[in-house]
Write a protein that binds this DNA or RNA. Structure first.
Lengths: 362, 362
DNA sequence: CTGTTAGCGCGTTCAC
DNA sequence: GTGAACGCGCTAACAG
């Protein structure tokens, strides 16, 4: 910066004024400074600027699983909004590991990140403690945690799972297995609540031996479904708590030559880009991931910019059912009745393009 | 920091020594300082440190498509190596857009990022100019570009595509369509080179009307394959230049009720987590994405740490063929012969777990 | 072993 | 309109 000032025959203060574009500078001087900047290929030091202004212009996004397209899509949404507002997004992959999450929080706060969007790995907000202490704007996404009092954007997992389970029940299923994710997360707990609720509402006894929980990953789900099958539990349908686990369940069934959906139907929560190509095309409860990202970033930027500092806001996004083949809804009538109780279910046609479905509660 | 020093009854220099853990500090003093840090919930300011040390401890990773699991897997590899070395990874999604890429480079250089790993959006290194000017260590991945003289890690796309195409030829295919990606990228050009080479080598005339290029995305591929089919070009197999495009091709075929692989076989470059579940299970040329990430980060950290500053290194990773169902290799003999020329092809069994396949050329 | 001092590169008062 | 001077929070060099 000194070099630029010297070359333009002005002081560093003037150069600063030109760069940050505030304060009075004559057109002529400005031109000379711009020229000097070009000539010297000068790049201002954002660290020094941040040190002075106490703002870094970057927001952190902490997600638990970067290879999961649900989270990368959220990421895209958040990124687009942030970039439009002149902010950078720093993505951290916590790997469902609270320790990693905590490490990221510390590293990033020390980098003077202006705000955080977090899909928590654990069940509590303990790893976010530094953020509340330092009063750094934070928005949670996807997962609710104990001890956090701030903005949050998440899906309506209870209602979604009720609808998803009900869809199977309406198709005549009575023995439905539920392969759940990590119960440390509110998402898993809510989905289980929804599952149980749907059964009870339909007057079906909840078979505890058909319910299992563990991690969110493919392998784990495959193992659990295999165990279920090995124990020869009678079941006609499986609900997987996320898209990856549905794949695991599929693998377990396929390995045993069990037909989907003819013998066992499968549905799951969360859509993925290729869900419509998987064999058989998965019926899913899709969440508006991109929208979740944009909304969360909007709330965050409002906080950062000081445009809003009222009480915590909670945005709940409705998921929607995409009926494809894996649930068996489109099988000939004779095949889908497992109980002499074939009931017509409105078929929601699968459609591409995510529609914005926001339901602001609270 | 001053507060901490005061509370511990020492100078800020001593606090600094405790934090950065270098220089001599008595155990007793250290204890007092640690205690003060805890009490005040003090978090050091990395900006100020960076200002002083000229190092930020973060490396940038610029990828063209964050929803593509190939790149997120690369990301995971890079991240793991970086974290182990005490570095943070800043992920930027350039969206295959050179302007965005350039903006990221500028924003990140001004953030004093210590190094870059880039999968370039364009065909030239022009957007990376600031990096060479400022002598910031940079490693390219996946894609070669003009005008860049630095380390690079990429796959052997020519050889891979030769092998992939040869696989189809060996199965008897003669009319093979090639749905390529963006020719701005070396990847697309190399894959086309490999495709043509394989045909010529087999004495098959290259049918230009069966070759198309465009973007890397699903929709574009679907459109192009649809066009091909509408024009009633005779073809018995399709090679898609990446996994997404294979999905697009599948959709186009499915929409017309064309059987895969019985009527038209499909293979593609790049594996994806769910490739083994897609209908029909895709035969792919898988690249060691995770390894690509770890190697690139290793090369970069060597440069950053000053452990290596010799001439540019080029690491070429061999892909491997995973034969599944979409190529038709496992169909009954009668079906796969399209030319009275059924030739046995060694079946490489699909296996999970990526093996490290590095072939250091140069 | 510990304190003092001098900047890192920038934005921001103040005078002029 | 512009420049001089100060300080953001930290580390490196030196002195003690």
């Amino acid at each position: 910066m000194r070099d630029v000032a010297r070359r333009a025959g002005v002081s560093t203060a003037t150069v600063s004024r030109v760069i940050s574009n505030n304060g009075y500078v004559s057109a002529e001087t400005r031109r000379r400074v711009d020229r000097a900047i070009k000539d010297l290929a000068y790049v201002p030091n954002a660290l020094a600027r941040g040190l002075k202004t106490q703002r870094s212009g970057i927001v952190a996004l902490l997600i638990p699983e970067i290879v999961n397209s649900f989270y990368t899509t959220v990421c895209r949404g958040a990124e687009d909004v942030a970039n439009a507002a002149g902010f950078q997004v720093l993505v951290g992959n916590t790997d469902e590991d609270v320790a990693k999450e905590r490490a990221y929080v510390e590293l990033m706060t020390s980098s003077q990140v202006d705000g955080f969007i977090v899909a928590c790995a654990g069940h509590s907000a303990r790893s976010l403690r530094p953020l509340t202490t330092l009063q750094i704007p934070t928005v949670l996404i996807d997962r609710k945690v104990d001890g956090f009092a701030g903005d949050i954007v998440h899906g309506d997992n209870v209602a979604g799972m009720i609808q998803l389970t009900h869809h199977l029940i309406a198709l005549g299923h009575r023995r439905i297995a539920f392969v759940n994710g990590n119960l440390e997360t509110s998402v898993a707990r809510d989905r289980e609540t929804g599952f149980r609720h749907a059964l009870i509402e339909a007057g079906i006894a909840v078979a505890e031996d058909l319910i299992s929980a563990g991690t969110w990953f493919i392998d784990d789900a495959e193992t659990r479904v295999s165990t279920l099958l090995d124990r020869r539990r009678s079941l006609s349908a499986i609900v997987a708590a996320n898209n990856f686990m549905a794949i695991g369940a599929l693998r377990a069934l396929r390995r045993r030559g069990i037909q989907v959906p003819e013998t066992v139907a499968i549905v799951c929560y969360d859509d993925i880009e290729v869900a419509a190509e998987i064999d058989p095309f998965l019926t899913v409860m899709a969440q508006p991931a991109y929208t979740m990202g944009t909304l969360a970033m909007q709330l965050l930027l409002e906080r950062i910019g000081g445009k809003y500092n009222g009480p915590p806001r909670q945005v709940v996004l409705a998921p929607r059912l995409l009926v494809r083949r894996s649930c068996g809804a489109q099988l000939p009538i004779g095949l889908i009745s497992r109980n002499g109780n074939t009931q017509a279910e409105p078929i929601v046609t699968a459609s591409d393009g995510e529609r914005r479905q926001t339901a602001l509660t609270d």
